[in-house]
Design a protein around this nucleic acid. Sequence first.
DNA 1: CAAACAGTTGAACAACCATTCAACCGTTAA
DNA 2: TTAACGGTTGAATGGTTGTTCAACTGTTTG
Lengths: 121, 121
Amino acid sequence: MSIYEKNAPTCECEELHNEVIEKKKREMPDLSTLYDLSDFFKIFGDSTRMSILFAIDGEPMCVCDIAATLGMTKSAVSHQLKILRQSDLITYRKSGKNVFYTLADDHVRDIIEKALEHIKE
Amino acid sequence: MSIYEKNAPTCECEELHNEVIEKKKREMPDLSTLYDLSDFFKIFGDSTRMSILFAIDGEPMCVCDIAATLGMTKSAVSHQLKILRQSDLITYRKSGKNVFYTLADDHVRDIIEKALEHIKE
DNA sequence: CAAACAGTTGAACAACCATTCAACCGTTAA
DNA sequence: TTAACGGTTGAATGGTTGTTCAACTGTTTG
């Protein structure tokens, strides 16, 4: 009673198929990795932060200009910038009264690019 | 007063630098794309869903076995499976009383792989 | 048919989180 | 020094969301 030619699932769930379960438990990443992974993606899972990342891509921008570009308050943007900072996704440089933000590295661009491909089917 | 050799930011924020802002507004993805992108990442931004994706990678698994592997209730897992289904990240096949889930395609694996690289610095 | 099981679903609850608001810090210019 | 501005921060608020619980569907078996 195989569903696929290979890797036939064997669980009938009346009595849980412990072989499969134990095998999966061994093969899966440990909990801390799973949390790190989902925490990482969580950063991208907000449209404000996503917009900020696009805005500061290439050209550094100060908080006021980011806020004006997104149509948001400085405060709201600053809160999200803090989260992006703590995740090491962006860097900043102070210049007088201004703080200019830009992407930390190209890795971020790569991941968003891959996601964009997927979305466009 | 340039911060970088190239792409010197010109905004002083007393009067917003509208050239930069208007340029960014033109270059940025439209709002629907930004929402689609962040919604996509939102799916991965939960450790339960992330765990499910790893569990059903390679070998199809029924809901009970997934639940047992993760140490969660069938109901909680089923709720998350629904979200993953609606995002077309997973497919399922019914077999008697069981429903076996597996990854929809390799695209998902790629994205998670890229994120794993980034996390490990 | 009836009982048992796999899985789904909706409502309720709790935890989380993004934005707002007000107060604050540091820098610059008068 | 004082006022103005860019930016940050903490508390409060409202909306979102994951899990629980109970009820339900559909399939299999006695």
